[in-house]
Write a protein that binds this DNA or RNA. Structure first.
Lengths: 105, 105
DNA sequence: GCGTAATACATCGTAACGCGAAGTATATTA
DNA sequence: TAATATACTTCGCGTTACGATGTATTACGC
């Protein structure tokens, strides 16, 4: 999938992936895999960004001797998803413009 | 509208805007305005990029004493729109994932 | 028991891209 | 004659996705 197209989707996908249940990096990548692929370096950058934007909080926990950082969505994060849904209306209208122009004979 | 969300759409919008009739910079911006806004610096960058990628060709013409550069879509450009329509299926599936997670109670 | 894969997180440098700012130049209009 | 519209160009900046690389532990196949 085109990188540019992913840019507007990744943040919200990560937020959606932790919305119902706190999760950690490795699991988020696996959960998103059927929908959108992202590398570890990409994800950890995103998580850091979302944390700085106070859209999620972090809590460290040990699991089988390995460190895990669990991410929890905040109200800001939930708001971000809401905004995304609003923006989606614009996206649809843009898509329809493209289709309209494309299918004109 | 979120910049990141625009990134995957702008190229294709510009191609769609010239697909049925050759057009020029200033007009493209106006035609796209109801759907997506972009600055001149953004558009001319995109046009140069699409030209380098052989998705369009350019022809200069004088109009009322002012220079106009008319852009014409190529087969590569048309292919790009087709690819976009294919990728859109993935985008929809991603969107549905977000909605599904968001609406789970 | 030993190599490989899986789990888990972190950092660095790079390239692509949108955009504001600033510039050049002509035509129209108030 | 000043302001606005038309029309294209270039520069630098900030944001972002990603490959490469690194660290460290656990699980599994042979």
């Amino acid at each position: 999938m085109d990188i540019q197209l992913k840019r507007g989707l990744l943040d919200v996908c990560v937020l959606a992936a932790i919305k119902n249940e706190d999760s950690y990096g490795y699991k988020i990548i696996k959960d998103l895999k059927p929908y959108i692929e992202l590398s570890e370096s990409t994800l950890y950058t995103i998580l850091k960004r979302l944390e700085n934007a106070r859209m999620l909080t972090v809590r460290s926990a040990e699991h089988d001797g390995r460190l895990r950082k669990y991410y929890h969505i905040t109200n800001n994060g939930i708001k971000r998803i809401e905004e995304f849904k609003e923006e989606w209306k614009e996206v649809i209208s843009i898509y329809q413009f493209v289709i309209k122009e494309d299918s004109r004979e």
